[in-house]
Design a protein around this nucleic acid. Structure first.
Lengths: 196, 196, 196, 196
DNA sequence: CACTAATCGAGACGGTACGTCTAGTCTTTAA
DNA sequence: TTAAAGACTAGACGTACCGTCTCGATTAGTG
């Protein structure tokens, strides 16, 4: 395909990078509440309309900033389902047991749940781990290691939901023992007899 | 002890009721984003300082409004653990599968997590169901119906966390089947052989 | 006990004295702009309704405070009209060439010009010197020292008006030379030949 | 001179005009006490920050409104000093013997006396007449009509001070006779023998 | 090479809401 | 009985951002 070759001055890629950098810095230094379009414009040296040309509001900008430095799906390397799942859960919890974890929750709560941008954010930041877990379970079932006798969607929510529950509610800490505890209970539900 | 008998004019209980009423109405009609102190003052016919005398900001006011009409702990009537827990989960999900549920999640995410007010809100609105579930499980264990072989805190988070997970992330709906699915999987973890 | 702790109904005078003391202190320490009923109530330990029972607003309170510590009419001792008038003008200017002078001007400008309280304030604080000057001039005319060939009211305004003019406008300073200059010019208008 | 050519969106001249118009209308209709930034914003259809971008507070806004419709210096046409000065004084008194006169006094009293804005207001609204009078006197002295034997600054204050004195204190009315009386007495001080 | 279209920075605009302060009124309790 | 303490309705204060809009400057293509 031929590039469209638009007439005017092309968008400045550097400007977007500076915007995301500034947004990210503000998030880590001052928190979600200080992430205003005004502050990002001032810090990045970019005009406000330039920001609004790419993101509709501060929430989308926050999501973009949180996505920009995101390693993505956490692959849990391991031979058995237990070790793979436990590895993934530990990575996940380690990644979220920081200020960034709570910022993600706040951003998600503040965002318009119907927006396309929000959906992309959910899929990449929140649900990617859940999808990776689904893959692990399906592979284990395929090689006969487990039997999926219950609703898989519910099971996935019971594995990954508690992480965000503790993040949002804050009644108990996110730590390695929590990761292992979830895996242990979850495996009960897939009749992983051989693993007991 | 004699009542404290404070010196000046006592707080007007009616004013507080009107404030909470107005806040509740705005929440249900316009949503969390429209719940501003200004709007509540205008709607309730109360001065802004009167609101600030009782609540530090709009978040606390939202929490107070959400708590004010709250039925509290959801008792799950039933003879067996399964029926009791399933009853409670159905009630819980029914109560949260509305606009109010998402508002609770948004409010919690926006609130200062260290504030005393936030902690009270968490205990009354979020964790009361979890505590009720803990009671159900401990009673069932006491009468020998189940064996608590795993970490009870983790198990409770796996039962109640998924509700808020779906509420916050919105990837799947909150319905009766979800309630039953959670109970079914949770009971696997307490070795409820007799119930199978 | 050093503070005389009265039993029963406290004396009315004490409360008023405390109010005026507090108002005066606020005027000298923080200026006219900070003299609010709220601040006086807080500082004097008196309830706001008690203040409103005696003064209609902060302006009246300011006037009362400014009158309370007022030495009143400035008598200009001296044998001749020139020396008597010059003595009075020097005293007047010395009394007003302070922060208090400007506060009096501000208070007068802010007050309701029709109020009875304002009229009393004008008579006691502003016009008393003018009346003293009138007496000096009439006495000098009676003993043949001068001839009042022009409108006495206008002449009096030309003697005392400039003081408040400089006070309000602030374009030049209030000093001894100013007092003497006014007297010198004023005496031209009364044909004080013998004094030239 | 090259115009500076500033970068951003230029200030909306129309908005400033509307602000001053609204401020002026409020001053004449409701008085100085009702001239709040809030009311001006509501009446002019302009945002509050736009007002604060140009004026620091309601006092400055009042001064700007009073200056905006100001005819400026009152030239007293006439062949002799007496007729010229009497003409100017009559114009001056006519201009100030209205509600606007008292508003000017109140505004000046309420304003920060050190502010640059206040100084400009004083020079344009209060002292311009005094400067015009100084010019008249110096011209008359130059053509030998009078002899300036006393301090000119004091004399000017004795001519223009009484106007503001009566305005502020309100003990007597501002009228034509007052203007003439001031001129008559003032001319005594400049040895205007030929004019007697 | 001039023209032209698009984007950039800057920043003022009309607004909304903030949280604070003060006004003046009203209601209890204490002296 | 009166004054204190203090909560009330009311509303202006000055600030922070919002999201929109107009500018002049900059930067490519296109003609």
């Amino acid at each position: 395909m031929s590039p469209p070759k638009r007439r005017g001055r092309p968008p400045n890629q550097l400007a977007q990078a500076r915007i995301l950098k500034a947004a990210h810095d503000i998030l880590t230094e001052d928190g979600f509440g200080r992430l205003t379009v005004e502050a990002v414009a001032a810090r990045s040296g970019v005009g406000k309309p330039t920001i609004y040309r790419h993101w509709a509001n501060a929430s989308e900008l926050a999501m973009a900033a949180l996505m920009s430095g995101d390693p993505g799906i956490f692959a849990g390397g391991g031979t058995s389902l237990r070790s793979a799942l436990a590895g993934q859960m530990r990575s996940l919890i380690q990644a979220f047991a920081t200020t960034r974890g709570r910022q993600i929750a706040m951003t998600l709560a503040a965002a318009d749940p119907e927006s396309e941008f929000t959906k992309a954010f959910r899929n990449q930041v929140i649900l990617s781990s859940r999808e990776a877990g689904r893959a692990l379970l399906l592979e284990a079932a395929a090689r006969g290691e487990i039997t999926l006798q219950h609703d898989l969607e519910v099971l996935l929510d019971m594995i990954y939901g508690p992480v965000f529950y503790r993040l949002l509610v804050g009644h108990r800490s996110l730590d390695t023992g929590f990761a292992d505890g979830i895996v242990a209970i979850a495996l009960e539900a897939v009749a992983a007899r051989a693993d007991r």
